[in-house]
Design a protein around this nucleic acid. Structure first.
Lengths: 210, 210
DNA sequence: GGAGTTATGTGACCGCGGTTACATACCAAA
DNA sequence: TTTGGTATGTAACCGCGGTCACATAACTCC
């Protein structure tokens, strides 16, 4: 565990803090697709993301989803932090987008460290700030942009996260993330293909020039 | 200042903390309509809201606005907290919805107190959590609801904040807040009136049964 | 290869909300 | 009371994105 910690967090946390994390943290490895946190659940611990990508979703009345943002290496879940302290329930769902490794830290420790370690304090606040900014991006997207533009941004982000210009998803899955319908997504994707920006294949999309 | 503080925060902060706030805080009284924070600005201090209501807005590419949420008595601005620490610029605009009184606290103190006072720490985290939840509500609203439903929620919230069943705004102003157009809002308001739920007058709307 | 399953393509239609244009009503100042 | 500004009402139109229906293509397992 300690080497994963050092790689991701070694430059921002001091040695005693790293040791404390290693002492109380529990490593958790989860496969792509597994649910890490459900809406309405109480939160047990705070996760530090070592590797992989987690997607954060919001749900509507019919149980349909909307992708809010991704968590990546070095991120943590800001929900967790505030929820833990106030004993509130989760407002969001967290699902592993790829295989992921995280370290779970007990809530009590995480609160203790805020007083004890300035670097931890900075980490927590910075983390919060990142999450807020991602929420603002999500709001801009749904409030100010049309579906075609949202789709392009989605494809770009997906490719960035995957580390390759290929999106390995069906149109239906994309529609879920964007809270749209399969027909609409297929229509818009076809337009992008006709503009020479992407190539469509069964079960994957290749980005040519976005 | 100290009595305003005691009224709003006396039951959650201990005496020494109240005294520290009183010692370094600066009282600021602002009239309704005045801009407290502009997008892109650096943040000077952290505000504790003593009385009044502040509205928090996001802006699109054309400079049009979208109301995100209101801050009320006992709230603080979570933007400020994270922005201050990271020296980042504001992502939002803050405008006084009513006359308001707030206490400005220097950033350095606010950070110091997180380590020093558990009650302050709780306050900061709880505050963050409230803000996140309000953002989720805003997202639900724009992503999952039609304009008629959003309008009803808006009118309810406005009336609650005003403390009377009267919304003293023009249709144009409501349209700005909801990032819609005047014609659309007039149309929907007329429908609500025909259903007997509101009464329309020049410059104000009376809620009958919402 | 045939059958069944899953993914994609596409036409037809429709409602919400945005825009334009103009009429009307209200209010204040002269 | 006229005049001019501002707020509201309403008709006409239109595009985006949602739904339904169905065709076609691709992959899997006998």
């Amino acid at each position: 565990m300690i080497q994963g910690l050092r790689e991701r967090y070694g430059n921002q946390f001091e040695e005693p803090l790293l040791e404390e994390i290693a002492a109380v943290g529990v490593v958790k490895e989860v496969p792509a697709g597994s649910k890490l946190l459900e809406i309405g659940e109480y939160i047990k611990g705070m996760p530090l993301l070592i590797s992989g990508v987690i997607k954060i979703l919001r749900e509507d009345r019919d149980g349909d989803e909307l992708l809010l943002y991704y968590l990546e290496q070095g991120d943590t879940c800001s929900m967790t932090m505030s929820c833990c302290m106030g004993q509130a329930r989760s407002e969001i769902r967290a699902v592993a987008e790829t295989d992921a490794t995280l370290i779970m830290v007990p809530v009590r420790k995480m609160e203790e460290w805020v007083a004890k370690y300035p670097t931890w304090r900075s980490f927590v606040f910075e983390s919060y700030n990142n999450r807020l900014n991602k929420l603002f991006q999500a709001i801009d997207s749904i409030a100010f942009m049309n579906m075609d533009e949202r789709l392009v941004n989605y494809l770009r982000e997906k490719a960035r996260i995957a580390g390759e210009p290929i999106i390995r998803n069906t149109h239906q899955e994309i529609a879920y993330d964007l809270h749209s319908s399969r027909v609409v997504i297929s229509r818009l994707l076809k337009k992008l293909e006709q503009m020479g920006k992407i190539e469509l294949h069964r079960n994957h999309i290749k980005i040519i020039d976005l």
